[in-house]
């Protein structure tokens, strides 16, 4: 993936949290703009919609909402740009996108519904693993 690395320039550090926040929004916009292309090149029309992918991107960003250090935000942004670049340049394959952004981290079995309401932590952990 040398061609992506050549094109990626490390921007100067954000001076303040405010600036970093702006950059995150810029990144989110860039990601949203590239989504139609992504749908096209990975042929995702039958498994996802643009709005689903958009909320996946938003939730990936919100996962790091607790980070307040501008340097760390810059680092995360850099990784996100790299990932976006890889996706947009078709450096991935269809199942990568489906596995990571359509199906999600929980895997195919997603029966977390009303069933798990009101059970103890022990039982939740028991269903997951022996340890």
């Amino acid at each position: 993936m040398a061609f992506t690395l050549r094109s990626v320039k490390v921007p100067p550090n954000s001076a303040s949290l405010e600036e970093a926040r702006h950059r995150v929004f810029d990144f989110f916009r860039a990601a949203c703009r590239s989504l139609p292309t992504v749908m096209e090149i990975y042929n995702l029309h039958d498994v996802a919609t643009v709005s689903q992918l958009r909320s996946t991107v938003a939730s990936e960003i919100r996962k790091n909402s607790h980070v307040t250090n501008p340097k760390v935000i810059d680092m995360l942004l850099f990784k996100a740009m790299e990932e976006l670049g890889n996706i947009a340049e078709h450096a991935k394959q269809r199942h990568h996108i489906i596995g990571q952004y359509v199906v999600g981290r929980q895997g195919l079995v997603q029966d977390v519904g009303t069933k798990d309401q009101g059970i103890s932590n022990f039982l939740k952990n028991f269903y997951n693993t022996n340890y």
Partner: peptide, 14 residues
């Protein structure tokens, strides 16, 4: 598989 006592503990809750 699960540890024996854990199975019974989980069953008791169910």
């Amino acid at each position: 598989a699960r540890d024996d006592w854990k199975i019974i503990r989980a069953l008791s809750e169910v």
